[in-house]
Structure formats: structure tokens, C-alpha cells
């Protein structure tokens, strides 16, 4: 067995360990509910592919989905691709994401089984999962809408997602690309707004454990949001249960109350300034313009204006 395959197996085992740990900690949930959520959570990380280095992970995942489809099968939901470093990583708007050794680089492929109008909660939930894990590890982090993770105003982690449709089977996959700056000791000058766990805490962190904890928590949160959707259907419109992703986001985000620049590309093409009021029930961001008018945005990005 290759070293990469061994690492993949090791990560699968660790993910399962943290999934069971997460479930065991949630004593406020009934046994039946907990077991349902755990069942969904365990989809994540059923199969892991590890690479010491790769160009980018999302194209690898896309290729695997299309390959399986052309062979007449479906790639199972919950597959994870993990790399020790990426040669051609990028963020949104084609921005470069510096991905040297010492970072955590993941791609997760899932069948989205929430109603389409609730897919936003996958993206928000991924951010909530990362922030929760970092905080439990003692690192004070905050979420900036939608799912950027910041430490003292600097970005330590980001999540991208794409939808991929297998042409023959018609199966849709959501791909989540996750990058966390873990033990990166310095950044190029053009990435002045980036930080790492090492820079923020002054110590090195175990990357595989962190990967496993983040993936396990993403699975758990996705399980929670599925349970919420199912409870909403059961309860009709009488008394809707609280949305666990929005609750988690509200607890961990410092966006509400910040004056922000908004834009498709808030760095290079800012569109307007506004006051962030909070998150809307569909995950959009409520902004108050200088005219006093309140609007909601569901795309684009924000940057904080420091006062």
C-alpha cells in the first residue's frame, strides 16, 4: 500500500472517531434524533484520497465524478480529496490562494439532498463548522459573511463551492473546496490580509487531526440542517424549529454591526458601502444603505471597513 493510501486510511479512521465524538457530546438531543444526524454525518469522509501535492483538488473531484459517470456508476456522496500542498490553488474571482506545505487543503463531494432553496445552508454550515472547531481548539475566530474565517480580522480559512452534474446519470454533486492556513509561517507581500493558525498562536498544529475534526463537524452540521428541514416539513408552518446553521452563524460571526464594502469583487470592484445588519432567513446578508434603505444580498462578498 502506498504512503498516500495509508494516509487516506488514517484520515478516514480519524474522521469516524471525531464523528462519534461529536455525536456523543450532543447529549441535549434525543437518542433517535442523534442517531439520525450521525447517520447523515457519517456520509462525509467515507472515502478519502490523499495526495502529498496536487495542482488543485476541485478539478480532481470533478474528473472522478465524470469518470465514474462514464463508467455507468455514481461516485459515492461524501468522498474527500486531501493534499499536503497545492501548486495552482485559487480562490474566488481567480484570486490566488497560496497553498504551500503546512496548510490544510480539502475537497468534499456531496449529493445535495436538501431542498434547492436550502442549499445556501451548506455553504454557511461549512463556515460554521470550521469556526466551531477552531474555537474548540482555543483559537478565537469569527465568520465574515458568507463563510470566510478570520482571526483578528485576517483570513485564515476559506470555502468555495461548485455544482457539478454528471451528464449520464443526471446526479448533481456539490463540491466544497476548503483551505485552512495551519502551519504556514509567512505569506507573500500581496497576501497581507492572510494569517495562519501558527502566526496567530505561535505554535504548530496537527494538520491531520484538524482535517478530521473539520470534516466530521461539517458532516454533523449538514446532518443537523437535514434534520431541521425534516422537522420543518413535519411541523408545517405552525411553529418552525430554529435553524441550527443560522443560530451557529449568528453566534460566531462578527459581520452584523460592521460597516462594509460590498461588491462582486469587493477588493477590485467595490459597488457600495453599507452597514451590515444581520443574516436573513435564507442566508442572505441584510445591509442598510446610507439612504436608510435596507436591502438583502445573496451573492458577492464584503470587506470590513475598519473605523
Amino acid at each position: 500500500m502506498s504512503r498516500n493510501a495509508l494516509r487516506a486510511l488514517e484520515l478516514e479512521g480519524l474522521i469516524m472517531h471525531y464523528q462519534l465524538q461529536d455525536a456523543a457530546m450532543k447529549t441535549d438531543l434525543g437518542e433517535e434524533t442523534r442517531s439520525k444526524i450521525l447517520k447523515r454525518a457519517r456520509i462525509v469522509g467515507q472515502r478519502v484520497y490523499y495526495y502529498k501535492t496536487a495542482d488543485r483538488l476541485m478539478p480532481l473531484a470533478r474528473k472522478a465524478i465524470l469518470q465514474a459517470d462514464s463508467n455507468g456508476t455514481d461516485l459515492p456522496s461524501g468522498c474527500v480529496w486531501c493534499a499536503g500542498s497545492l501548486a495552482q490553488a485559487r480562490g474566488r474571482m481567480g484570486r490566488s490562494w497560496w497553498a504551500p506545505e503546512g496548510g490544510l487543503y480539502l475537497c468534499l463531494a456531496l449529493y445535495p439532498s436538501l431542498f434547492h432553496e436550502n442549499w445556501s445552508f451548506y455553504n454557511l454550515g461549512a463556515g460554521v463548522a470550521i469556526a466551531q472547531v477552531l474555537i474548540e481548539m482555543g483559537v478565537s475566530s469569527k465568520i465574515r459573511w458568507i463563510n470566510d474565517i478570520l482571526i483578528r480580522g485576517r483570513k485564515v480559512a476559506g470555502v468555495l463551492s461548485e455544482t457539478v452534474r454528471a451528464p449520464r446519470s443526471g446526479q448533481t454533486y456539490l463540491l466544497f473546496g476548503i483551505g485552512i492556513n495551519v502551519n504556514v509561517e509567512a505569506f507573500p507581500r500581496d497576501l497581507a490580509q492572510a494569517t495562519s493558525l501558527y502566526i496567530a498562536t505561535g505554535r504548530h498544529w496537527p494538520i491531520r487531526q484538524l482535517a478530521a475534526r473539520v470534516l466530521a463537524r461539517i458532516g454533523w452540521i449538514f446532518g443537523l440542517i437535514h434534520q431541521w428541514e425534516s422537522d420543518c416539513l413535519d411541523m408545517g408552518s405552525v411553529c418552525l424549529p430554529r435553524n441550527p446553521v443560522l443560530d451557529g452563524w449568528n453566534l460566531l460571526s462578527d459581520t452584523p454591526g460592521h460597516r462594509v464594502i460590498y461588491g462582486l469583487d469587493a477588493d477590485l470592484a467595490p459597488e457600495f458601502e453599507a452597514l451590515a445588519r444581520g443574516i436573513a432567513p435564507d442566508g442572505g446578508l441584510r445591509l442598510v444603505l446610507d439612504s436608510g434603505e435596507e436591502i438583502k444580498v445573496n451573492s458577492g462578498e464584503i470587506r470590513y471597513i475598519e473605523t
Binding site: 454557511l124 458568507i146 445573496n298
Partner: peptide, 27 residues
């Protein structure tokens, strides 16, 4: 299509042809 930091590629499903008109500006 970009929504909540999720990019979805939209495929063309009708008969072959040529791109005649673009009704939006990128972004």
C-alpha cells in the same frame, strides 16, 4: 451562476447554433 459563493455551470440544452446575443454583463 454564482449564488452564496456557490458556482453552478449551466448547460445549453437546445439545438446547435451560434451565440447571437448576450443579455447581461459578466457579474
Amino acid at each position: 451562476m454564482s449564488l452564496m459563493k456557490r458556482d453552478t455551470a449551466i448547460s445549453y440544452k437546445e439545438a446547435s447554433g451560434v451565440l447571437y446575443k448576450v443579455y447581461f454583463r459578466s457579474g
